[in-house]
Structures are given as structure tokens and as C-alpha cells.
Write a protein that binds this DNA or RNA. Structure first.
Lengths: 227, 227
DNA sequence: CAGTATTACGCGCCTCAGTGGCAGTTGGCA
DNA sequence: TGCCAACTGCCACTGAGGCGCGTAATACTG
């Protein structure tokens, strides 16, 4: 199951922690996929991963967290990218580029975990909710950091907050359509359904953003009449 | 505590149900405000309201639901207004008008409950999350209804979904700044902090929407230098 | 290579939200 | 008046999440 070697150069203690976390995520995703998220109790998961429940909660704040850990990694990468990016030109473009870059910097084992998480979220309302919330929180953090950096005041100028919401909307919309399109393609053809496709969907959503503001009822695209 | 007479003309059974729900919401808000959301157990709440816990869950899906019931009412009114509205001109304007109308159609006892809920949510992460989720769900329902009505396909044209996200963003942003401004005004001066102010904040957010798309770093409003 | 300070871990216990079965009650209606 | 259906209460149960404390491993110091 992909690489399970901890990043070299870390002190022993950190390597152990890395392994514990990695084991927890791995066994959790395996069990959830086999038996369903709700059907796997934390007690069982902990028994399987050979850690105490007490320890589990030292690594993850909730049962949902362990299933969606890949998303948390992405959110962190996004925040890092944005902090490192130069704030020049349209800020929406900066947000967009940071998000795309964060996706593309992930490893292939991340992609596996991410897809596994989305798979679970697609059939588990509780997980969908958790994902929604975590992205909203990530967006809030990002906007606050940006406000700090630019010396902006969110109470006086709401446009920056709006930008955050836009980026979040594009992400959600992109992921949504990406997931939907993965269902149709009879299995996972290579080059279809992976990260490139996800990135494409997100960019599509970003592209549609400016035009959406002025959308009227009669400029809505309707699907071709069913045959 | 405001009106507690059930809407006339209902059959006896419905009036009883109305009273049960009303009692639950009332005692819940009172207890939560007195002792904090987390400190009040459902057992205690049910004892105080003189219903069994089993019955509580026939009325509300969760402990959070009863605290934020006012928001659910507003969401429903919003959906109704939108369904009744003519889909002409810019759709964002239709969404905006429906939301504002929904707020303004509420009773004054609703306003009390709404404010009480926001007060609690402001200091209870779990409630904030619940509110966030419920609004996101409401927005999804609204967009789906609109897609249905206009015969649009969300997979082909993401702009309609984006519109939903815009409206949601304006709501969030409006409420956020409304709550923030209520804290400063040394108590609740009449005409300040009520629904008119809330509506004003939301409209402000809607107004800022189009300009936000093109926001650049050097056009961000900065607060006047602190003295 | 001692000894000591940190830090993580496991165990057992607890609270409480939320669920399900089943029996009792009450309103609607003929 | 009596039946049916909806509603409610009681009770036992599961599972998430938290907490104190004793133990064991790692890191640091001389």
C-alpha cells in the first residue's frame, strides 16, 4: 500500500509518531471501505491498529478526522503556498494558483488517501459534513492570514472575505463535478479521474466565477434534450 | 416571553405539537443562556420541559437543532419565497430579494430566538458548525430547486451553483459583521442591532460581490491608522 | 554511560448524545 | 361509543469522546 517509510532525518520519536499516524490512517481507510464508516467502531479500529483509544484521540480529534486526513494535509499545503506567494495582481488569481499548486505538490499516496476519503464521504453524510466544515475553517484561516498581511479590515471591506468564499466555492464545485464524473467512466481509466482531471474541474469553476455574477434565467445552459 | 399562543385554526393535535415544540425551544434557550450549551444535558432539558428524551428526538434531530430552530424557520421561508418568486432578470437579484423578504416576514418573537441562537453560537463552536452546515444544506436545496425549475444542468454549467455560493457568502458575511457590530454598541440601543441592521449588512455584502472578483492587493481598504 | 527530565502511551472509568422496542395514552372519526 | 392511528413515556443500550494516573520509552546532561 504505497510507501510507508517515514521521512528520513527525523529523530526516533518523531518517526514513531509518524508511523502511528500512518498506521491509523491506513487501517481506518481499509476498515471503513470494507465495512462502512458507521459500522466500524473506534474500539475495533484501535484494536486493529494496536493503539489505545486514548492515543487515538491524541492524534485525531474525531473519528471523521482520520478518514479525511488527506484533506487536512491539502489545506495545510494550501495555507503554506498562499503565505509564500507574492500578493500581486488580482487576489483571486493568487488564491487560485496557491490551491492548484498545493494539489500538485502532493504525493501519489496522498492521492490514494484523498480518493478513499471522498469515496467514503460520498456515502456518509457525517463525513460530507465534516469535510464541508473543515474547508470552511481552512478558508477562514486563509482569509484571516491574508487580512493580517495586507493590513485589511474585514469589518470595513468585505470584499476580501468574499474572495475567500469564491475560492471555497470553486473548490467545492470542482470536487463535486469531479466526483460525479468519476462515477460514469466505467471504472478508472488512466488519465481520467486523477488529479489532472480534478485540477481541470477546479479551474473550470474558477473560470465560471466572474460570469456567474450576472447570470440571468435565460442565459442558463440547458442540457440537450434527452433522446 | 413573547407570544405563546399557537396559530389559531389548527386541529387540537397540531396545537399540542406546536406547544411542545414551542416549550422545548423556549426552555432550551433559557437554560442554555443561563448555564451554557454544553453544561445543560438533554436529560435536564427534557425534565425541565416535561417531555421524555424520546419525544425530544421526535421534534428535533439533535441538541443543536433546538437552539438554532429560528435559523431553520428562516431557511424554510427563504426557500418558499424563492419558489414563489418570478425568475426574471439577474438571478443573484432574485436570490437576494428572496432572502431579504424571508427575513422581513418573520415575527418579532422569531427575532428574539434568532438573536438568542446567535448569541449561543458565538461562544459554542459546535453550534457555529451546526449553523454553517444547515445554511450550506439550505443553499444546496435552493440551488437544486432552481436547477429543476430552469431545467439547468449543474454538471454542464456551474454558474448557477456559484450563484448559490454567492448568496450564502453574502449571508454569512452579513451575519458575521452584524454580530460583530452588536458587541460594540454598549448594550442594545433600539434601532441598532435589530433586523434592519442585519438586512443592511447583508445588502452591503451583496453589493460588494461583483467588485470582489477583481480585487487586487492595492485596492484593499485599510483601516485608518490607530491613534 | 550513568541519571534525570520529557514526553508519549495504556488502562480503566466516566458522561452523555442518540437509538430502538414496546406498552400506554390521546385525538380523530364513524 | 368504540375503533384506529398517531403520539408519548419508560428503559435499556451503544458508541464517541474525555480524564486521571501510573508506566515506559526517548531525549538530554555531565
Amino acid at each position: 500500500m504505497t510507501t510507508d517509510t517515514p521521512p528520513a532525518g527525523l529523530p526516533l520519536r518523531e518517526r514513531k509518531k509518524w508511523r502511528t499516524r500512518h498506521t491509523l490512517v491506513g487501517t481506518a481507510l481499509r476498515l471503513f471501505r470494507q465495512h462502512g464508516f458507521a459500522e466500524v467502531t473506534l474500539d475495533r479500529l484501535c484494536a486493529e491498529a494496536e493503539v489505545s483509544k486514548r492515543t487515538f484521540f491524541r492524534y485525531f480529534a474525531s473519528k471523521e478526522d482520520v478518514a479525511l486526513h488527506a484533506e487536512a494535509e491539502l489545506q495545510e499545503a494550501f495555507a503554506r503556498r498562499l503565505a509564500a506567494a507574492a500578493a500581486e495582481g488580482p487576489l483571486l488569481g493568487v488564491l487560485r494558483a496557491s490551491l492548484i499548486a498545493a494539489i500538485e505538490e502532493q504525493s501519489s499516496s496522498w492521492e490514494e488517501r484523498f480518493i478513499a476519503g471522498r469515496y467514503l464521504a460520498a456515502r456518509t453524510p457525517g463525513l460530507r459534513d465534516h469535510s464541508t466544515l473543515s474547508w470552511y475553517a481552512a478558508q477562514s484561516r486563509v482569509v484571516e492570514a491574508l487580512e493580517e498581511r495586507l493590513g485589511a479590515d474585514g469589518r470595513e471591506d468585505v470584499r476580501l472575505r468574499m474572495l475567500g468564499e469564491f475560492a471555497l466555492a470553486a473548490w467545492r464545485c470542482g470536487v463535486r463535478n469531479w466526483v460525479a464524473s468519476r462515477g460514469h467512466g466505467h471504472g478508472n481509466r488512466p488519465g481520467h479521474g486523477g488529479r489532472p482531471e480534478l485540477v481541470r474541474r477546479i479551474e473550470e469553476a474558477f473560470d465560471a466565477l466572474p460570469a456567474a455574477v450576472a447570470l440571468t434565467a435565460d442565459t442558463v445552459h440547458r442540457p440537450p434534450p434527452a433522446l
